[in-house]
Design a binder for these strands. Structure first.
Lengths: 207, 207, 207, 207
DNA sequence: GTTTAAGCGAGACGGTACGTCAGGTCTTGTT
DNA sequence: AACAAGACCTGACGTACCGTCTCGCTTAAAC
């Protein structure tokens, strides 16, 4: 009679990895990059800040800094993903953009972007986990608005979903200006809403 | 009799700098960054590729890699800066975007962006020389269109001028997809023209 | 009712140590040092070779590598310690030197010597257990010869007892030449016997 | 007519190595090994002590510590190589041994010996430069004594030349006792002179 | 035509960080 | 409690790159 339950096929042997180490390292990584920038962050400093030794870092992220940052960003996105629901498309868009911009840090973003260029697998990972997910969230906002009759249907293309993120990147990384309420409202009222087939007049849009 | 006018007080004594060195270095810099990425480009490799010694590089760009890259981008923009004039706003926009995207390289752009985060003076320099200039070129396109009566006047804000560049950055650096004609036309027809107060119908814009 | 006599107060509780571990580790240590040299032998490799885990090693030899090697050498000397008795001093000396040189390995010896320099307690231990013991063995050889009337009495000083070992060290560690029969005979006939107050002519000793 | 003098065939290009660096490093190496022992000397400490950077060390001695020590010993022997001449063989021997023992340090010697075991080329180098040279010096002492009629001729074999060094090694590295005058005299009177075919009575040699 | 100041290639140099390796300790679960 | 496995900290390793410096040579303007 065969064994029916070989459930745990590979029993983890030896001392298990301390999960607190992981959290400490990722948090320290985000903090350090935000403070001094990606390329001025050293692994030694990261280890010291996280209260951890270098080998422990390289044991978990053999790829070094770049791997850590991508992982940290992913982990950060994991907590905090409720879709706003204000009742109107305009309110939803503003709330959505504010939410997505919350923990945004130019240093972190710039470091990430550069690493994406030199690691196809990193880039694929990031696109799947972050970009597509963000696009889906944006789309559900619009779908909900269409259900309410605010706009027509089927208007989301990759191009549309990229607009908010793109403009925020430029604003923050290149113009180095803050993402304040005035800017977000201008973005929504003068760019996003006008290019959607709005059924009811919502923003006056006087030039 | 005393010399009355030492007119050119900073008469260059000694051997003058060989201008060919500069070109060789800038070209090698662009090529190298495009090949291996900004942070994997070493100054030694740059010197070897340009057939030049390291002191020669640092004598001209004391700031090192970042300075060189900004200078290279600026130099590249210098040749090829005629404003397109196709007769219609749509044609101008497409031609303008195509032109600006010509020699665009993701590696170079990503490296530049990261350096901007950690050097305020570099960032100021770049904003003045490139961002503002580009905005001005974009504005003159619209002004011309307004003069032709295609659109209203005074519609250019920093936000508007940033849109094309922003979207192209995202497309290239994050989505890693090519900037082809179809994309440029979609960008113009579905985003740029709709948010301008177009007077005549130009693109059908059927959803 | 109180316990009156916990006679064996250090009753070994729990699982007793497996004696086979000790042998395996010592054997592996000697083999590894002989193969790659003392400082290139790693404890991990030692553990792997002995089929044992690192904590098992450190539980028994808290001092690490150096302690293990000294212990291994001592253990090796333990088996094989019968004094030769050939009837003549010359024969005894030759047999004694051959025996002492049996398992001699330059790597092991060199590693041991270096460790002795940086650990006084190790050095004391080794001197007591090995050096003095060897001197005693050498002395009893001479005492026996004196009883036979071959030589005078009271000729053994630390200096005398050190000579054979010293020369063998140099021969093996510095000159890197083998300790063969010809060499041992030359050592006995040209050095050891001449400096002892021999009563009967034994070795012709023609120069 | 051929050029008679192509003397400087390969002109040294670039900045020449600063010879003071070499001296500083070798001196620091000897000092450090003597202080803390070979295996506890770190390259970082060596660099700090010599006021030099690590790459400078590895540029000159790619083999690391072992190469440096051998080089240092060789350099040290270079200065201070006059043969003693006291008029008698006994005086010469004592002076010679004292001289050779002058800067002798157990730590340095032990480190060297261990390194010799794991680098055949190092070992060959050392044997040529030091061992053979020392043997030659010893031989010329005896040759001079033979010319004076103190001893017979042709008595030097590798074995003889090794005796003083061997015994000193053991005395210092294993017994850890000082090489004082009493010891040197005992060595000369009780070992070296007796095994040479002395013609005149020189040392009473009472047992 | 000298002089002379600078450009220039080569490469040593101090410094900083890298990613790795080994020693020795500690924490699991198992025997 | 011993044991195997392996995570962990510490500290040193040897290397890579940066930006500076010192050479000896070349070049062109100034004298």
């Amino acid at each position: 009679m065969p064994r029916l339950e070989p459930v745990v096929e590979d029993a983890p042997r030896g001392r298990p990895r301390d999960p607190r180490r992981r959290e400490a390292i990722l948090a320290a990584a985000i903090a350090l990059v935000a403070e001094v920038g990606y390329d001025r962050m050293t692994v030694d400093a990261l280890a010291a800040r996280a209260g951890v030794s270098k080998p422990t870092i390289y044991r978990r992220w053999p790829g070094g800094k770049s791997e850590i940052i991508v992982d940290a960003i992913r982990a950060k996105r994991a907590d905090g993903g409720t879709l706003p629901d204000t009742g109107t498309l305009r309110g939803d868009l503003i709330a959505y953009i504010r939410g997505a911009t919350e923990g945004f840090d130019p240093h972190v973003a710039a470091g990430l972007i550069m690493q994406l260029q030199s690691s196809p697998e990193l880039e694929a990972l990031f696109r799947e986990e972050v970009v597509c997910d963000e696009a889906a969230r944006f789309e559900s906002l619009l779908t909900r608005a269409a259900a309410r009759g605010e706009i027509g249907e089927g208007v989301v293309t990759p191009l549309f979903a990229d607009i908010p993120g793109s403009i925020i990147f430029t604003r923050s990384l290149i113009r180095n200006e803050p993402i304040d309420d005035a800017f977000v409202e201008e973005l929504v009222d003068r760019v996003l809403l006008p290019i959607l087939p709005v059924k009811k007049e919502q923003a006056p849009h006087v030039v």
